[in-house]
Design a protein around this nucleic acid. Structure first.
Lengths: 186, 186
DNA sequence: GTCTATAATGAGATAGAC
DNA sequence: GTCTATCTCATTATAGAC
């Protein structure tokens, strides 16, 4: 049940943000009463943090897998773009970080710190990918890899935000076209 | 009073999004009762749309002014970056579009259309600036100007989102460092 | 672990006096 | 235009039975 609740909460938060879902929503979808949720997660902040923590752990695994299974930096970067496109594709959802970042004012510092840690994690991964891609000539990297990685994350999150407005995943593609074009495909 | 209410609502929305402010907040800051707000704006959606419409009109003026007063494409692009940095600098606020985009699920189609229109407007402005900058050799423009403009807007909105998480405007600068470096300064 | 019942708060909105 | 008073609804959260 705890896992089911986490799944439903993550889905809801990606779709409508931290402030955009309620215990009532989750309870209905889970088939239990909302009071029962408090047994698993005493407060909504606890639930939000638990969702974000699990999300962070899974992201680490996924980034590691992308690094291992990619035969070039370019292939890894393409996988990262796909990772963010997934959410934008399914009904204008955001990655959990972008979704929760919009509600930073409503959440406590534990969650904000976790968000910051995850962003830094993705930036570090992207930086490593850019360095690899520069080495194997599969990505065009003009400037400092760390700075490039930071701007790429901003672009990916911004592209999701813009796609949500149009309700069209093509908007995400349009906003990341330039990034995708920096990959030299064999 | 109407103008005061619009100002307070815009401020609140940039700071906490559409769902993050209430008539009670605005009423307190304006020094009137919340029932009185309904005289000026029957529903919260009406208020949100009015704020966004005014924002769009002002943005048009500001973009026009930037185009007129800039002596090069690079100078204009720098002005646009500053425009977005302003908000990120003052306490992790977002531009109104980014702030409302996070709450798209909670607003009606009139507002969503207005958001889309404003995004398109900024993209068109950026495209024009890139073309100018490419012509006068003040900006490095590699790909299609329209695609570049779209990704730049995504980057700027994403940079604001990331800066909100760290509560540090330097994060905005880090995420836009690569963009700023594309400007050749005389 | 889940339930019923309820508390406590805050939201947007309306009616009608002044 | 602004007020008081009220409505209706949704929210998170708690107490206590089963």
């Amino acid at each position: 049940m705890r896992e089911l609740l986490l799944n439903l909460a993550e889905q809801a938060m990606c779709a409508r943000g931290y402030g955009g879902f309620s215990y009532a929503d989750i309870a209905r979808d889970a088939g239990i009463r909302k009071a029962s949720i408090h047994h698993h997660f005493p407060s909504k902040q606890d639930m939000g943090l638990a969702v974000l923590d699990r999300y962070g752990e899974r992201l680490v695994q996924r980034l590691k897998l992308i690094g291992q299974s990619s035969r070039s930096g370019g292939q890894a970067l393409a996988a990262i773009i796909d990772l963010y496109r997934e959410r934008a594709g399914s009904g204008g959802m955001l990655c959990l970080c972008a979704a929760m970042s919009g509600d930073v004012h409503a959440i406590d510092d534990r969650i904000r710190s976790a968000l910051q840690r995850i962003n830094d994690l993705v930036i570090a991964s992207l930086e490593e990918i850019l360095v690899t891609g520069r080495g194997d000539r599969s990505i065009s990297v003009g400037g400092d890899p760390k700075a490039e990685a930071t701007s790429i994350l901003a672009m990916l999150q911004g592209a999701q935000l813009m796609a949500r407005v149009t309700m069209n995943p093509a908007t995400f593609d349009a906003a990341t076209e330039v990034l995708a074009a920096r990959i030299y495909r064999g």
